[in-house]
């Protein structure tokens, strides 16, 4: 049983890698489209030239946005677009004949692409640190927590967008909704403004939304800005969002399949 599972994982990852290698230039361009944090880095560094803003010096801003860039690249997810298209056009049908949930195939695809993004984004980020002279107070424990938090962020983002994509069983607005959520994620996750520079009422609302835990949370860990209790609290909230979206995903998938079969392809 376990051997079969492992073989499935290896096959899925291998197929995904072969598919993506076919479109490697395209993937490279997608990586370059993630440059919004770098544009914001220049803006904030320019603003902080005269003196620190809200506790951030120019190099602090550089470190913040370079890590944001990295985390965004690794947690990349576009699954709602694929699900929307496949469900609307009936391309989902052949996938249902396979003896495993297409969820795993999409997950393998996303992980492979995340790996490809990492190989490009990591040198870019390191170069950024060298050019801007930003310093990262690296500690082994922070690095470990960061890795766990990024994994958590990936699971939240992937499952959240999977849920959005599954809405295509009921509406043709799923892709539009996904784009809307992307805007929210960019602004409320901290890709344009470090969240602690937002007015206090906005920050209070953010605590109840998943976006800060997908982006801002891991970034702040690596920057060494989170003391123990805040770290613990962040992980607890991450786990809650993970449970919520995984549960919702399974519910939507089961309900949606019934709907899909009723329509007939």
């Amino acid at each position: 049983m376990i051997a079969r599972r492992l073989r499935l994982v290896r096959t899925l990852l291998g197929t995904a890698a072969a598919e993506m290698a076919e479109y490697r230039v395209s993937v490279l361009v997608w990586i370059l489209t993630g440059t919004a944090p770098l544009i914001m880095m220049m803006i904030w560094m320019g603003l902080a030239e005269a003196g620190p803003m809200g506790g951030y010096s120019a190099t602090d801003f550089a470190a913040y946005f370079l890590i944001v860039f990295l985390v965004r690249q690794v947690t990349v997810a576009w699954v709602y677009e694929e699900l929307d298209r496949e469900i609307r056009l009936g391309e989902m049908s052949p996938r249902l004949l396979r003896p495993f949930d297409p969820y795993w195939m999409f997950a393998a695809q996303h992980l492979t692409v995340a790996g490809m993004h990492l190989t490009i984004a990591l040198p870019v980020a390191l170069l950024g640190f060298a050019v801007t002279g930003a310093i990262l107070p690296l500690r082994p424990d922070n690095l470990a927590f960061f890795a766990v938090a990024v994994a958590g962020a990936w699971v939240i983002r992937f499952n959240m967008l999977y849920c959005v994509g599954l809405l295509a069983f009921w509406t043709d607005q799923a892709a539009a909704l996904g784009n809307l959520i992307f805007t929210l994620y960019i602004v409320l996750g901290g890709a344009l403004v470090p969240l602690d520079l937002f007015p206090a009422p906005v920050q209070q609302i953010l605590a109840f939304l998943p976006f800060a835990y997908i982006l801002n949370f891991p970034v702040q860990i690596l920057l060494g800005n989170l003391p123990g209790p805040a770290l613990l609290q962040g992980f607890v909230v991450q786990i809650l969002w993970i449970l919520l979206f995984i549960g919702l995903r399974q519910l939507l998938w089961r309900r949606g399949l019934r709907q899909y079969a009723a329509v007939g392809a």
Binding site: Y23, V25, S26, V29, T33
Partner: peptide
């Protein structure tokens, strides 16, 4: 195969 340059 590169259809995303405008996105860039």
């Amino acid at each position: 195969k590169v259809d995303n340059l405008p996105e860039l």
